[in-house]
Every structure is written in C-alpha cells, then in structure tokens.
Design a protein around this nucleic acid. Structure first.
Lengths: 106, 106
DNA sequence: ATTATGCGCAACTAGATGGTTGCCTTATTG
DNA sequence: CAATAAGGCAACCATCTAGTTGCGCATAAT
C-alpha cells in the first residue's frame, strides 16, 4: 500500500548534498547500480545505500533488481509536488505584494 | 558577510512540516510575531523560535525587531533556487526521455 | 510603580541521521 | 568448482534535531 510521500518528505530527501548530487546524477535517464553511484564519492557503499533508501521513501527513485545488481532510476514525479508548493507560495506572495502596492498608490 | 544559503539548506529548511506550515502562513505578506506564530500550534514558543532560526539561516525569512516584539516576514527569493534546481533536473530528464524515444522510433 | 507580555539564553532529553565496520548471501566469471 | 564483485543486514558511534523547562530582561499596559 505505498501511499504517496508527503511534500515534506520530498523536501527533506533533497535537503542533503549527497542526495541532491545523486538525483542530479540520475537525471540523465540512465539507471545506475549502487556500486556505480558509490564510485566517485568519498563515502561507503552502505552510506550510499541508505541515501537511496531515503530517496526511495520520498518516491524520487526506484530500484530494480537486475541479476546481482540493483539499478536505480530517477522518478521525477514528486518534483511536481515541490514545484506546486513553491509556486503556490510565490503566487500568494506576489498577489499580496501587488495588493499592497495598489493600496499605496491609491 | 551573510553569504547566500545553499540550495541544500533551503530544501532542508522546508523538509519539516512545522516549517512548511510557517512559510505557508507567512505567504500572505503579513509579518507576524513569534507569539502570533506560536498561537494555533501545539508546540512551545521556543520550538517555534528555533524553527524560525532555521528558516532564517536558509534565507527564507527575516526578523525585524519592533518594540518588544520580533516580527518575521517571508523572503521568497531562495524559493527561486528550488525552482531552478527542480526545473533543471526535470528538463534534463525530459530531454533524455525524448532522446530515448527518438532512438526507439528510428 | 507594578504587572503582564514578548523574547532570548542555556541546559537538558529522546530520538533521528549520516556514517562506519563486519559478516553473509547471491550472482558472475575464470 | 573457486574466486570475485554486488548487495543486504545488523550493530555500533557521534552528531544533529525537535522538543522541553526554567530563568532573566526589556518593553508595554494599568
């Protein structure tokens, strides 16, 4: 019953440099194994695994077992939630601002 | 020398339900005092203060001392960083996808 | 002048988080 | 079959985090 991850969880998942880099890394559409993702990093494979679990928990990434390796691919859908939230706040802010401006000019 | 907060810090600041609510709350353009922001919440004023410090650290909020009260206002600029990051990843993902599609159709 | 309100500071707690190491299982490859 | 590479699991550790309480200090309000 994988319920949809909260917006909060998505933000939290992206609130870490390592995870942010992982997402960027996977944005090219090429799924990558844990070992591949670990190479070029200074941390352990286990640490990378943990980060992937967090991203998976936020729905940002999905792992598919393929032989002996586990390849992870990006799932950009939760990014839509982020866009939506940011858009909503920005919009409300802007309209409040222009309302204030209209008040002053009057 | 307030250097610009990292994208990571902005995501992290928003990766908490309480903080997310605070930002939403301040989106109407009305600065609010700590006491006001605490009212309607189930946590202590001190807890709210801490959250505000985190948001301030991410540049999302600014406090102005006004008499005996400290009124906080939203600063939506860091949200631009979020938009940019998400946009970049989404865009790269989409173009990778359409490239793949073109490959298959050929 | 007193009282009440809004905050800041500091100490403390339980639990989450980021990281490590060691060991075991499962595929691949020679 | 033996050797190797990819991962999972679990224990452990240090640090961060979200929250609390208690206290003291200004700035209103009466």
């Amino acid at each position: 019953m994988r319920r949809r991850p909260t917006t909060e969880a998505v933000f939290a998942a992206l609130g870490d440099a390592t995870r942010l880099a992982l997402v960027s890394r996977l944005a090219d559409g090429q799924p990558a194994s844990i070992a591949e993702l670990t190479a070029g990093t200074r941390i352990t494979r286990q640490a990378v695994t943990k980060h992937l679990r967090v991203l998976e928990g936020a729905g940002l990434v999905r792992g598919v077992r393929c032989g002996r390796e586990n390849r992870f691919a990006l799932d950009p859908r939760p990014l839509g939630d982020v866009q939506e939230y940011v858009g909503r706040v920005s919009q409300e802010w802007d309209s409040a601002l222009s309302r204030l401006k209209a008040m002053v000019e009057e």
